[in-house]
Design a binder for these strands. Structure first.
Length: 154
DNA sequence: GCCAACGTTGGC
DNA sequence: GCCAACGTTGGC
């Protein structure tokens, strides 16, 4: 049984289409610099888990697609690179602070499910997205996942 | 571009 | 350990 997650990304920096066009449609989910999100990536996100790909900080924020985890948590090496915008001198290969996973594009939703729409669904009112709006990696319950799939036309 | 929410940092 | 200052996120 896979677990379900919601990963946020600003489409201006990395969009669903960007993921789709990567080699093998696969990319590192790097740059997460929040401890609670880090804990999920390091401890709970597993190969085969299904991910709602969410576009944030854009004209129509919402869930736009589905991705799948193809590698579970391992040290985020961008933290070790002084030239990376995600560089963190407090993290080292010996004692990494930050973790990432790899995800692969699965599909675009038949239609996006916007944040505004999600807010109107009573069964979804418990979602972290609606209550803990800044968490960029967050668990999604199976019922919530299925409800969103139906909203998307799947 | 504004600004509220909120996570993080650092002085004490 | 508290909490004010600060920086970032992200909706609008």
């Amino acid at each position: 049984m896979p677990n379900y997650w919601l990963f946020k990304s600003e489409p201006s920096s990395f969009s669903l289409d960007d993921l789709k066009s990567r080699p093998d449609a696969t990319e590192h989910w790097d740059g997460v610099r929040n401890f609670q999100a880090r804990n999920f990536l390091r401890d709970q996100v597993q190969v085969g888990d299904q991910v709602l790909f969410y576009h944030s900080n854009t004209a129509e924020p919402g869930v736009v697609g589905i991705a799948e985890v193809v590698r579970s948590g391992y040290p985020d090496f961008t933290a070790f690179d002084p030239n990376s915008k995600y560089f963190d001198p407090k993290s080292s290969p010996e004692r990494p602070t930050w973790y990432m996973v790899d995800v692969r594009f699965v599909r675009e939703l038949p239609r996006p499910v916007t944040l505004a729409e999600l807010r109107t669904i009573p069964e979804l009112s418990g979602m972290a997205l609606l209550n803990r709006s800044r968490l960029s990696v967050q668990p999604v319950r199976e019922e919530e996942w299925e409800r969103i799939m139906r909203l998307a036309g799947l």
